[in-house]
Amino acid sequence: MEAESASTKRRREDDDDVIPSDTSESMESLFDADILRLTKVISASKITTSRQSEMIDIVSRLQATFRKSLISHRVTQQTADLANTLADVQTALQNVSAKLATTSLAAPPAQLSYAQAARSKIVEKVKVPSGKSVSPVSRSTVVIVPKPDSPLKTADETKTTLMKVLDPQKYGLRLDRVTKTGKSSIRLESEKTDLTKIPMDILDKAGLVVKPQGKSLPRLSLINVPTNLSPEQVKEAIISQNFHDASDEVLHLANQHLKALFRFGPRDQQNGNWIIEVHADVRRYLLASRRVYIAWNACRVNDHIRVTRCFNCQKYGHHSSDCKSELQCGHCAEKHDTKACSNLDRDPTCANCVRFGHKGDVVKHKAISNTCPAYLKRLDAKISNTDYGL
């Protein structure tokens, strides 16, 4: 049993001398009733009027004395309770002081400025081209490829082989997506399973191997940047004008990883736009700032997340200048150039949704639509393969 505190011991020892408040109130009521009865008896007694007055006066003084005594007792009791409470508080403070004396504590943080407080809120969502904001989902991702000496030549063969040797039920795998990523490679994605723990010896015996899959750094778009600046000058201006209250770590990451990739928009105007690549922590810092200052301009800053689509064949992942596929219309999905389409009076048909086996109303939109299921799937994969620091 724990040792009895000094204040508790004092309180217990004083119990015999303390009248509880409810008991004192009862005593007062009884005393008043007795006084009233006594006064009535005196008034009814056959004694001289002067003697009655004297006796009633004595009773009144007794009543006043009793009340003073009762009030004094209550004050004493409350004072004792207060003293005991203060003793408990003092003991608690002593215990806290003792713990603080034996614990190494960091110096208290300095008061944050408004800008620092704003940046302390992590930007959790990514703004996509449709104007919406989505929350990135952390996924474990691995790419499975055949060994150089493997007879496997296609992604379908790789997938079939993997499914023969790897039992998801046996190893507790929960796969969200299995997709083709190249001529003979496939990508596995999971939100619930660490896919890097797939037994490598099983893959090795099947002639397969895991290809290292690093994530891309986030990209930001800067609007209203002076067009006369070089990539090096853009980077120098961003770092020198925007990280005045950043931590040393964030400033170091900006110096190491910030890159001005390319400029887009009109080139014959005074101001244009730039796409920059940054570390996840630098992205949070700049987005929380709402503006990026470059030279004399305050530039808007947003996430830049794009899915490349070919204007010739409508497929994702390459530009028209690198296209090796047949023409396919972005309006009706037939084999001709979109600009030469003669079916504009018909409902649109998405070439990618048709290619992926969709039917019915699901395909009734143009290939360029931001609500296209095929596009949204690619966009989700793009976000999942970008390092947002989750």
Rank of each mutant, 00 (worst) to 15 (best):
D22E: 09
L30E: 14
F31G: 09
A33P: 07
D34Q: 15
S53L: 12
I56S: 03
R67K: 08
H73L: 13
R74I: 03
T76A: 15
Q77R: 14
D81Q: 04
T85N: 05
D88E: 14
T91E: 06
V96C: 05
A101M: 12
A107E: 06
V128N: 09
V137R: 13
T161M: 15
Q169A: 14
Y171W: 10
R174C: 09
D176V: 04
T179F: 07
K183C: 04
S185F: 03
S190Y: 00
L195C: 06
L195A: 00
V210L: 09
V210E: 08
P212Y: 05
P212L: 00
G214M: 01
K215Q: 07
L217A: 15
I238G: 00
I239K: 12
H244W: 12
E249M: 04
G265D: 03
P266N: 04
P266A: 04
Q269S: 15
D281I: 11
D281S: 14
Y285C: 13
L286T: 02
A288W: 14
C299S: 03
V301Y: 05
H319Y: 12
K335S: 14
K339F: 06
C350S: 00
V354A: 10
V354I: 13
A374K: 02
L376K: 08
R378P: 06
L379G: 06
L379S: 04
L379A: 09
K382W: 11
T386A: 07
